[in-house]
């Protein structure tokens, strides 16, 4: 007969301990986002008492550190952020969707693995490298056409390249989730590949494709370093594709190092605005994804 020793902590007590400590870690991990948003908000709150807040819209210029005649206009930078994001999406979204379609519907034994690998690697290239390439290669090229080269065009090319993998991967995933039987049924009834793609696949995956584009959009708005290196960083509403500009993210990166008092507070407010733009996009994407999984 075996003697079952019981010289150990009761397993249920160890389990309880583990459950509690892992629960604690989980609480900590889940609260990080609250801390991040909370601290940014707290640091930006003084802005409401220090200045007339409407001035961030009504002021035309941005001279927050000027002791006599400070101005706080954020509009040029907000416009800069939106314009560069829009221009980047304008070419990267259709291109990304096309590539995903190629991977799913027009695969080639030679190209498809290369394209997949490229997408994966491209997603991992740091923004600083994209920015550096833009600064050293792209900007001089654009400067040949029209000086100074650091421009909306350079910004949207670099930014578009950065969000391209996101759009490709998400769209591909959406298209891939189509049941195989659908394609077989279509083929069996004599529906061609293009007709299937156009009338069945794309409409069915609308949600998933859109969420890829939204994800790219969110990433583009938040991107800092790459844009900073190719945008020229002049606070103005760009009049053409060849004009330099500044975005709200690059503004934070450029000025936080020396900003004090109201200037600093306003930079935090900018970060709060940035969060306020990204969070609803996330919500939209979530709903798109659930719609897709239910549809």
């Amino acid at each position: 007969m075996i003697l079952w020793s019981s010289n150990r902590l009761s397993p249920s007590r160890t389990d309880m301990l583990l459950r509690r400590s892992l629960g604690l870690l989980t609480c900590l991990a889940a609260s990080v986002v609250v801390f991040v948003i909370g601290f940014v908000l707290v640091e930006s709150l003084p802005a409401f008492s220090e200045i007339e807040l409407s001035r961030i819209i009504s002021d035309d210029t941005w001279h927050p550190a000027d002791p006599d005649n400070a101005t706080f206009g954020l509009i040029p930078m907000l416009v800069g952020s939106f314009l560069v994001t829009f221009c980047a999406l304008l070419w990267a979204a259709p291109l990304g969707i096309s590539i995903a379609i190629a991977n799913e519907f027009y695969p080639s034994r030679f190209m498809s693995p290369i394209v997949r690998r490229t997408t994966e690697i491209m997603a991992g290239i740091p923004s600083i490298v994209f920015g550096f390439w833009g600064l050293t290669t792209l900007v001089p090229l654009i400067a040949n056409i029209q000086a100074p080269g650091q421009s909306l065009l350079a910004g949207s090319i670099v930014l578009g390249m950065m969000i391209l993998p996101t759009i490709v991967l998400t769209t591909e995933q959406a298209l891939h989730s189509l049941p195989n039987e659908l394609a077989i049924a279509a083929a069996a009834t004599g529906v061609g590949r293009f007709a299937f793609l156009w009338h069945v696949a794309l409409p069915t995956c609308r949600g998933g494709i859109l969420s890829g584009v939204v994800l790219g959009l969110a990433r583009a708005i938040g991107e800092t370093m790459a844009v900073l290196m190719v945008s020229g960083n002049i606070v103005q509403i760009p009049g053409s594709l060849f004009d330099p500009f500044r975005t709200i993210t690059t503004n934070i990166a450029l000025e936080m190092g020396y900003a004090t008092q109201t200037h600093r507070t306003l930079l935090f407010l900018t970060a709060a605005i940035l969060i306020a733009m990204v969070v609803p996009l996330m919500a939209v994407m979530q709903s798109l994804n659930t719609e897709q999984s239910h549809g």
Partner: peptide, 8 residues
């Protein structure tokens, strides 16, 4: 989804 500059 929070941009890296905000983490900074």
């Amino acid at each position: 989804s929070i941009p890296s500059i905000v983490f900074g």
